[in-house]
Design a protein around this nucleic acid. Sequence first.
DNA 1: CGCTAACCGGACTACCGAGTCCGCTTACGC
DNA 2: GCGTAAGCGGACTCGGTAGTCCGGTTAGCG
Lengths: 174, 174
Amino acid sequence: MVELRADARRNLERVLDAATEVFAEEGPDASVAEIAHRAGVGQGTVFRRFPSKDDLVFAVVERHVAQMRALAEQALAADDPGDAFFDFIRGVGELAMSMPGLHACVVHCGEKPGAAELEELGRKVVARAQRAGAVRRDVKPADVQGLVRSALTGAPAGEWRRYLEVVLDGLRAR
Amino acid sequence: MVELRADARRNLERVLDAATEVFAEEGPDASVAEIAHRAGVGQGTVFRRFPSKDDLVFAVVERHVAQMRALAEQALAADDPGDAFFDFIRGVGELAMSMPGLHACVVHCGEKPGAAELEELGRKVVARAQRAGAVRRDVKPADVQGLVRSALTGAPAGEWRRYLEVVLDGLRAR
DNA sequence: CGCTAACCGGACTACCGAGTCCGCTTACGC
DNA sequence: GCGTAAGCGGACTCGGTAGTCCGGTTAGCG
């Protein structure tokens, strides 16, 4: 499987796009049949590339997480560590909540995909903000991640920005 | 169905107890078969009393929510509105997280069961604390509820108390 | 007692979604 | 062109769950 035939590659992309769409709308419980149909291919085609449904979810989430990594890198390069942190979190919120279903997928896969690097970067962003005295020192980077994810996941439709601000206020050094 | 035969009443209680146990362990996705088995009755017996599985979930959640109402009433009777509020929230946390699966059930049923009265009481507790200057004024009672629920739902196993404290700090008037 | 309506259990149906299989189609190297 | 292996689709299997049904059991009244 080093080289994919042209039609196979085309279908693979269709599947990934359709899966992103469908998962974004319905979350990780969307059925593979729906995705295959939306992609205009048979179920067999989906399962040939992604041996299990979870593999498909991972692939979709992977793309999504990559964008967050970019934000984290940007935050590390910024001048003010405190502002960088708070803007980073807000950016992650915008990204995640632009496709709520996908966010549920991220939660669904736990830590699996490119989360390791993202977490590593996130750790640095947090540590830097703590060193600069902008973030309270008694929270661990994992706590920040968890709290933010909770606020985003739990907020009703249009309210997540307000929720996030409350959490961010709770994270500020006092 | 005004009067229930003695054996029927006994079975009804067994079912409710078993359901509470099982939902507390496995969340709202636990199967009715498991509950019936744990209660030592047939599935038919369960469905005779609760026409759908959701009805059963509601009944179980109802009981759980009643305990929270008690806490809210207690909070309203307390002297210091600020302390009352923060202790109330912590109490709700203890109650909810002593049975995490049940908490997921509460989330699962949305607002259905005795939530209306609980919400009404909660509203008063929050308003009182805001009037006393202990809680920031730009949050609505529903936000408090949502934020707390999010923090509890999203926290990993042993960490919910720490999460809750961050959120509570975010809610304090500054 | 003994009769009967209420009640019981658990087999059964209906349905849904993940993952498999195989006969047919098509890209593409020669 | 043409032969063939890569690829395709979608019907099918399999497992699991909500909800139904009915022949058998029993509470409890007279």
